[in-house]
Simulated scan of single mutants.
Amino acid sequence: MNLPWVESPFFNEILKTKNLTEEEKQLATEYNKNGFVVLRNVFPEDVIDQVKADMNQKGFNEDFPVTVYRDKTRIQDLWQYSDSTKQISSNDTIMKTLEMLYDREPIPFQTLNFKFGSQQRAHSDTIHFSSIPARYMCGVWVALEDVTPENGAVFYYSGSHRMPEYNFAHIKDAPEDTTYNDYVQYEDFMQSIMNVSEFDKKFFYAKKGDALIWSSNIIHGGSKVEAEGSTRYSQVTHYYFKDCIYYTPMLSNMVTNELYLRNGFKNIKTGEPVQSNFNGHNITPISTGKDKSILNNRLDEVKKIMDLVKLKNKIVNKLFK
């Protein structure tokens, strides 16, 4: 089945066939049920402290030139300038755990480093990062300092990963293209879903070095920072998995199936560009203009046939004119 085995309806049957340790079985079972797992004290303190130093000396230092997005709260893709950030995202324990959970090679492709709590509203990562086959994506949030109710803990809705992957095809009445200017509509929609759901809202009061692995579709965000100015140093790494087609629903037209494909991104661990495919089968996207494409290898053949039909009609018209 084209789903990660930990999200498959056949999970319990598949689990019986796996050659896993008891600890791995427990992790997989928790992930299947809740949509997240916690790994305690994964990262050595010296690596964490170096990440924080790089954040301050490079990421949030306006005199240090970068070509990536940053503001006062976060910097995207600091790994391009920080070996310690890259080391966190490529950690052996994390990579092995992800490969066990997904049965595919994990591909770290984006980092977000936060100096302060994000205070981000409830959302699913699938609106930003999705794949075909579906759900081969996850996030790993790492505490670079202790988290308390004062500095804005991550929150999540346990079990919400089992919901549909909501996008603007569920929200808008017209089949129009969307941009990040429409994002607040998505946030409003997701909050309204959570308001009527039975999922428990939980807070991750992590200790320095702890990691939270979450499924692509679990609903999560950042809680309010109660103590103004208090830091909450943390790093999120987003991972895809090998042999998928990667795209962004937020910038796609999900009604007409015109996808904003994520092409040319790099595997943080290897530095190599990642090539999209469907379970090892290449599919050539066809541009529909601007920044969107459709996935249909047959369209070229259809065009050739139509050209032949036109040529035939032209010849027939000449013969019987």
Score class of each variant (00 low, 15 high):
1 M>R: 05
4 P>N: 03
5 W>M: 15
6 V>G: 00
6 V>A: 02
8 S>P: 07
9 P>Y: 12
12 N>W: 12
13 E>Y: 06
15 L>I: 09
16 K>C: 08
21 T>I: 11
22 E>F: 15
22 E>H: 12
24 E>R: 03
33 K>A: 11
37 V>P: 01
38 V>D: 15
41 N>I: 07
42 V>F: 06
42 V>K: 04
42 V>L: 08
51 V>A: 02
52 K>M: 12
53 A>E: 13
54 D>E: 07
55 M>Q: 10
56 N>S: 12
57 Q>Y: 14
58 K>A: 06
61 N>W: 07
66 V>T: 10
68 V>Y: 11
73 T>V: 05
73 T>F: 09
76 Q>M: 14
78 L>M: 02
79 W>P: 00
80 Q>T: 12
80 Q>N: 09
83 D>W: 14
83 D>R: 14
87 Q>P: 12
88 I>G: 00
88 I>E: 00
90 S>E: 04
92 D>Y: 00
93 T>W: 09
102 Y>P: 00
105 E>P: 01
105 E>M: 04
107 I>F: 00
122 A>F: 03
122 A>Q: 03
122 A>P: 11
124 S>M: 14
130 S>L: 02
132 I>Q: 06
141 W>N: 12
150 E>K: 09
151 N>V: 06
152 G>W: 14
153 A>D: 02
159 G>T: 05
162 R>V: 13
165 E>S: 11
169 A>W: 05
170 H>I: 13
170 H>V: 09
175 P>M: 10
176 E>T: 08
178 T>A: 09
179 T>Q: 06
180 Y>V: 08
181 N>V: 04
182 D>K: 04
184 V>T: 06
189 F>I: 12
191 Q>C: 12
191 Q>D: 08
196 V>L: 04
196 V>Q: 14
205 Y>F: 06
205 Y>V: 12
205 Y>C: 06
206 A>W: 08
214 W>N: 01
214 W>E: 02
217 N>Y: 14
217 N>D: 05
221 G>T: 10
224 K>A: 11
227 A>P: 11
229 G>Q: 09
229 G>W: 06
230 S>R: 12
232 R>D: 13
232 R>I: 10
238 H>P: 00
238 H>L: 01
240 Y>F: 08
242 K>V: 00
248 T>M: 10
250 M>V: 14
253 N>K: 14
254 M>W: 02
256 T>W: 14
256 T>G: 08
256 T>D: 13
267 N>K: 01
267 N>M: 01
269 K>Q: 01
273 P>K: 13
278 F>G: 03
279 N>R: 08
279 N>P: 13
284 T>A: 10
284 T>P: 03
285 P>A: 05
293 S>A: 07
295 L>N: 08
295 L>I: 15
295 L>H: 09
308 L>P: 11
312 K>L: 11
312 K>V: 04
312 K>S: 13
314 K>C: 10
315 I>C: 04
319 L>I: 11
